[in-house]
Design a protein around this nucleic acid. Structure first.
Lengths: 154, 154
DNA sequence: CTTGAAATACATGCGGC
DNA sequence: GCCGCATGTATTTCAAG
């Protein structure tokens, strides 16, 4: 599917304000409400828009710790990875799990915790007990310099 | 500010569907519309809700590459960090920039690119030319095992 | 794509509990 | 504090140009 400059502006606007009304969105991009809504629906249908969500504040929720957890696996068999994947999906503290290239790690997880005690508990009782986990390394987030909520639209 | 179980349910619902109407939200959490809207406004005001956004699909936008870029700085002076911070904020390809603990890296950036050529250009012409950048290491994302869009609400 | 109109759904405020 | 209703507004949706 091909998108034009109007679609791009729609995506850019919705990325910044997901609750904007169709009327105002149309006004901002310079179109009347009808075609604007049609485009939005088409973009949703085509999968450009994956969903709409409220962004919450981790601090306010008492999640004071954010950790980048690197994990290396002992044996690289498909079953090991599948079981690991399934396990982390059941852990709400894990915000993101990426399978990455690199000699020192296979997985990189972004984890939140209330405090060091909770994180220690999570690491020792839930992660290191998973089958196949050979090594772990925790990098603590000192500061979130930039957290862009939007993708570049070219 | 203290939140009760209704507020938590509101946050959980809005995290999953940021465009839900107040009426339906009220129905889902088991409250009537009036107090529900009052709570939503209060949660926004108190900073629990940081905003509402559409989540877009990187693949559909032609961003086929995601890279975890680790950067170490040569001198750890405040000015260096400030200038670096400002520089990455002007780079739309950088989705996230974290200052982290660890001996091998100071910053960790999450970057998207259309392809390897674009990434190479970004890395060589924009990152390594920044003042203070001593070393870089790119880890390519093979697969996004989990990308949770929601924080755990306890 | 635009305009305009009709029907629907919505947010919001108020009195009562 | 919550509920339910009333009211005015915003929104979607459709048809015609």
């Amino acid at each position: 599917m091909k998108i034009d400059r109007y679609d791009k502006r729609i995506l850019a606007e919705l990325q910044q304000d997901g609750r904007v009304s169709n009327q105002e969105l149309a006004e901002r991009i310079g179109l009347s409400p009808s075609p604007c809504l049609r485009r939005v629906r088409a973009l949703e249908e085509a999968g450009f828009i994956r969903g709409y969500r409220a962004t919450l504040d981790a601090r306010q929720l008492g999640l004071n710790l954010m950790v980048i957890l690197s994990i290396s696996m002992d044996r690289h068999t498909p079953e090991r990875f599948e079981r690991f994947d399934a396990a982390v999906k059941d852990m709400p503290e894990v915000l993101e799990c990426l399978l990455i290239t690199g000699r020192d790690a296979d997985y990189q997880l972004k984890v939140v915790a209330r405090d060091m005690e909770d994180y220690q508990d999570f690491l020792l009782n839930r992660i290191t007990r998973l089958e196949g986990v050979a090594g772990v390394h925790s990098s603590f987030v000192l500061r979130r310099v930039l957290e862009r909520n939007s993708l570049p639209i070219t």
